[in-house]
Simulated scan of single mutants.
Amino acid sequence: MELLVSVDIKQTGDDKEVPFLSGLDFLQDGRLVAVDYKNCKCIVMDDRLIKLGKPYKFNTIPLDIVCLSQCEVAVTTYDKTVCLLSVSPDNVINLTKKISTSTNVFSICCIVPTNMVVSTFNDPRPVKMITKGGVESDCDYVLFQTYKLDESNCTYVQSKNTLVLTDRKANTVYMYDTFTGTSRAITNENIQQPRGACVGPDDTVLVCSGAKNSIVHMTVHGDIIGNYPVDTKLPYTLCMTKDGSRLAVSGCGTARKLIMYTLS
Rank of each mutant, 00 (worst) to 15 (best):
M1P: 05
V5I: 14
V5S: 09
V7R: 15
V7L: 03
D8A: 14
I9N: 11
I9D: 09
Q11A: 13
T12L: 12
G13Q: 10
K16T: 06
E17F: 13
F20E: 01
L21D: 02
S22D: 15
G23W: 01
G23F: 00
F26W: 05
Q28S: 14
R31E: 02
L32W: 04
V33I: 15
A34M: 10
Y37L: 15
C40T: 08
D46H: 06
R48K: 09
L49M: 06
K54W: 00
P55I: 03
P55R: 03
P55M: 02
K57R: 08
F58T: 06
N59P: 02
I65H: 09
I65G: 09
V66T: 15
C67I: 02
C71W: 11
E72V: 15
V73W: 01
T77V: 02
V82A: 07
C83V: 12
L84Q: 10
L85R: 14
I93V: 12
K98D: 12
S100Q: 10
V105S: 07
S107A: 14
C110K: 14
I111Q: 02
V112I: 09
P113C: 00
T114F: 09
T114N: 11
I130M: 01
G134Q: 03
E136Y: 11
Y141I: 04
V142Q: 03
Q145S: 07
Y147S: 03
K148T: 05
K148P: 05
L149Y: 04
N153S: 03
Y156G: 00
V157N: 09
Q158T: 11
L163E: 06
K169F: 02
K169P: 00
M175I: 14
T182S: 06
I186N: 09
I186H: 10
T187H: 07
E189D: 08
N190H: 09
Q193P: 00
G196L: 02
C208S: 15
G210F: 00
G210T: 04
K212A: 07
I215S: 11
V220Y: 08
G222C: 07
G222Q: 09
I225T: 14
G226M: 09
N227G: 13
Y228G: 09
D231C: 01
D231W: 00
Y236V: 02
T237F: 02
T241P: 13
S245V: 00
S245D: 14
L247N: 01
G253P: 03
R256P: 11
L258I: 15
L263Q: 01
S264H: 14
